[in-house]
């Protein structure tokens, strides 16, 4: 029987348990913060009883609405733009003969990774202020999207590059032999092969953008407060479980989003 053998060769002892431990480690704090969103006390450190009140105040909180809207606009745009750029760049830097400057290009792509955040923040701030001062250019929330795109690119690029390196090219050549246009060959062959890399890259770009504080704080203009800014700047006051309610709402939204897309994908597959 071929099937049991196939599963057998993929197995490595202990890997399943480690994967489960990883998931536990990632989810336990999240569960705790969700539970504390129901705390009727006003501190995140002491459990006093159950209430849904913090959800009420979170949902009525206009600052939260604005911040959530800004965050989603910025993170989603930056994720899309940076993932597209990163995918193209990964193809342009692995599906080619080594070109002069390839190493330099690789360094440039990864530059945002290496520059400490506060430095990027100060530099970007000076840069946008300079543009605004000299050319009168201000892209509004576009400033933030650009700044985020820049530091998201390496995070999207590395998983995609890791996928492309050492990838079997025979399919692409076969397509070319069958007179497929480069675009068709890309769409039908390369892109589907790249999907796991693109998914991973986009996911990383999104979480990096979603949690950014330092750069956003310095680049944001009036009315452009994002969730991390909103939450961080409350640290002088004791955090109330409202913050947990806010986080839980975001988590539920993400879970809902994931489930819906999963269901759609499954229906399509049928």
């Amino acid at each position: 029987m071929a099937e049991p053998r196939a599963i057998d060769i993929k197995d490595q002892p202990g890997f399943r348990s480690i994967a489960i431990i990883c998931l536990l480690v990632l989810y336990v704090p999240v569960l705790i913060l969700m539970i504390f969103s129901l705390n009727s006390g006003s501190l995140v450190t002491h459990w006093e009883g159950v209430t849904l009140g913090w959800y009420g105040s979170a949902l009525l909180n206009e600052e939260f609405h604005n911040a959530a809207r800004n965050t989603l606009i910025i993170s989603v745009s930056a994720t899309i733009i940076s993932t597209i750029c990163a995918t193209l760049a990964a193809i342009g830097m692995t599906r080619v003969k080594p070109w002069r400057g390839l190493a330099a290009a690789f360094m440039v792509i990864n530059l945002p990774l290496m520059v400490p955040e506060i430095i990027t923040a100060v530099a970007t701030l000076s840069f946008f202020a300079l543009i605004a001062g000299t050319f009168g250019l201000n892209f509004g929330i576009g400033n933030l999207i650009l700044a985020h795109t820049v530091f998201c690119i390496p995070f999207a690029y590395m998983p995609i590059r890791a996928r492309l390196e050492d990838m079997d090219l025979t399919l692409e050549y076969a397509a070319a032999d069958l007179y497929a246009t480069p675009w068709n060959a890309f769409k039908r062959i390369t892109l589907p092969l790249l999907v796991p890399g693109i998914m991973s890259g986009a996911a990383l770009a999104f979480i990096v953008s979603f949690d950014d504080f330092t750069i956003t704080q310095l680049v944001a203009g009036p009315g452009q407060t994002t969730l991390p800014l909103y939450i961080w700047n409350q640290i002088r006051r004791p955090m109330t479980p409202e913050i947990n309610a806010i986080s839980t709402i975001l988590l539920l939204v993400s879970i809902l989003f994931v489930s819906v897309s999963f269901l759609i994908a499954r229906r399509r597959a049928k």
Binding site: V122, L125, G133, Q217, P222, G223, T225, L229, Y230
Partner: peptide, 16 residues
């Protein structure tokens, strides 16, 4: 909008 320190505010204001 909020800031977390005088220095943050000052950096932004000074940049213009």
């Amino acid at each position: 909008d909020d800031y977390d320190s005088n220095e943050t505010m000052l950096s932004k204001v000074r940049a213009g």
